[in-house]
Amino acid sequence: MRVFSRSNRVFSRSNLVQTLVGGYVPLIVAVLVVFLPLLWMVLSSFKQPSEIITLDLNVLPESLNPANYQAAMTTVPFGMFFMNSAIVTMVGSAIKVLLAILTAYALVFVRFPFKNAIFVLILVALMVPPQVSILPNYILIAGLGGKNTLWGIILPGLGTAFGTFLLRQHFLTLPGSLLEAAEIDGAGHWRRLWQVVAPVSLPSIATVALVTVVSEWNEYIWPLIITDKPESMTLPVGLTLLQNSESNAEGWGIMMAGAVLVILPVLVIFAMLQRYIVAGLTQGSVTG
């Protein structure tokens, strides 16, 4: 009888209301806020101008006509933009992840003066908005001749305070016996890093890599400032060029198609590997 009364209290009306109001309703609202604009963008990319510029709300397009996608890919050099974004993303992400691994390992396993002070500076860099450094970076890169070059886009963002912080927190959770055994076997820091620490930290490293790839692919402000020629523009900046070419009311469908093409690779990668991101973010969240 006692078990029955407890189960009744668990499934009571007040508990159900609290669960709905405090859990499911905010979750549904958050999903709709993120999903509905994306859905509207995808649907609008198949619409004709008369279906977009109208007083009658047409949610679904009359037909799945890919004419907007064809126009978006031919109005601007879309293939060149895609190649530039791929190069910037792959090279920049690889270097940033490598630097994050090396820096985090040094902050945890290497003894040197002022190590804690350096980590505090990294935390400060994590809190400073990146827009603050745009002007000094522009003066430096332009002075070095990096304007309208891919290396000029990549170079200022090679440091990653987030990746260093996340990997350091995870490295602190590794048992000291692993490193002690490797040290007894005569392994130096380089072998300990790549043969012991890195293999057991793959989820966290994968998380840093995925977040870095998404950030590099979606970067807009800095490539927009440092480039003004189509030969060195990335996809987000190329979308701005497409907007300038299709500034009239009839170009909304074409711009929506271009936006879908820009975010589609990142959405696919993120959807496929999101469980690794969650595992990596939670793996280093508890220390001790």
Rank of each mutant, 00 (worst) to 15 (best):
V3K: 12
F4H: 04
R6L: 13
R9Y: 09
R9K: 15
R9D: 13
V10W: 15
V10F: 15
S14N: 14
N15Y: 06
N15A: 12
L16A: 14
Q18T: 14
T19D: 07
G23S: 11
G23D: 05
V25M: 08
P26D: 07
V31T: 11
V31R: 00
F35Q: 08
L36H: 05
L36T: 10
L36D: 07
L36W: 09
L43W: 08
S45D: 02
F46H: 01
K47L: 02
Q48D: 12
S50E: 14
L55T: 14
L55W: 14
D56E: 14
L57K: 05
L60H: 07
L60N: 06
P61D: 06
P61G: 00
A67R: 12
A67D: 06
Y69R: 06
Q70K: 13
M73E: 09
T74M: 12
T75F: 07
T75H: 08
V76H: 01
F78V: 01
F78D: 10
G79P: 06
F82S: 12
N84H: 07
S85W: 08
V91G: 09
A94L: 12
L98C: 11
L99M: 12
L99T: 09
A100Q: 10
A100D: 13
I101T: 07
T103H: 00
Y105V: 04
Y105R: 05
A106D: 09
A106K: 11
V108E: 12
F109T: 07
F112M: 10
I118H: 01
V120Y: 01
I122P: 04
V128F: 13
P129M: 09
P129S: 08
P129H: 06
V132K: 10
I134V: 14
L135W: 08
I139S: 10
I141K: 02
I141A: 00
L144P: 02
G145C: 03
N148G: 02
T149K: 02
L150G: 02
G152D: 03
I153Q: 09
I153L: 09
L155D: 03
P156Q: 08
G157K: 13
G157A: 12
T160A: 13
T160V: 00
A161G: 01
L167I: 13
H170W: 10
H170S: 01
L172E: 14
S177R: 04
L179A: 01
E180L: 02
E180I: 03
A182I: 11
A182V: 11
D185W: 13
D185K: 07
Q195R: 14
Q195S: 15
V196H: 01
V200G: 11
V200Q: 08
A209S: 14
V211I: 15
V211N: 14
E216L: 08
E216A: 14
N218M: 08
Y220I: 07
I221G: 05
I225A: 08
I225R: 11
I226N: 10
P230V: 01
L235M: 15
L235E: 10
P236T: 00
V237T: 06
G238K: 04
N244M: 12
S245P: 00
A249D: 09
G251T: 07
G251F: 03
W252E: 11
G253P: 02
G253E: 05
M256C: 15
A257P: 04
A259R: 10
A259Q: 12
I263Q: 03
L264E: 06
P265V: 11
I269K: 09
F270T: 06
Q274N: 15
Q274H: 08
R275C: 01
R275G: 00
V278F: 13
A279S: 15
G280L: 02
Q283P: 00
G284M: 05
T287I: 05
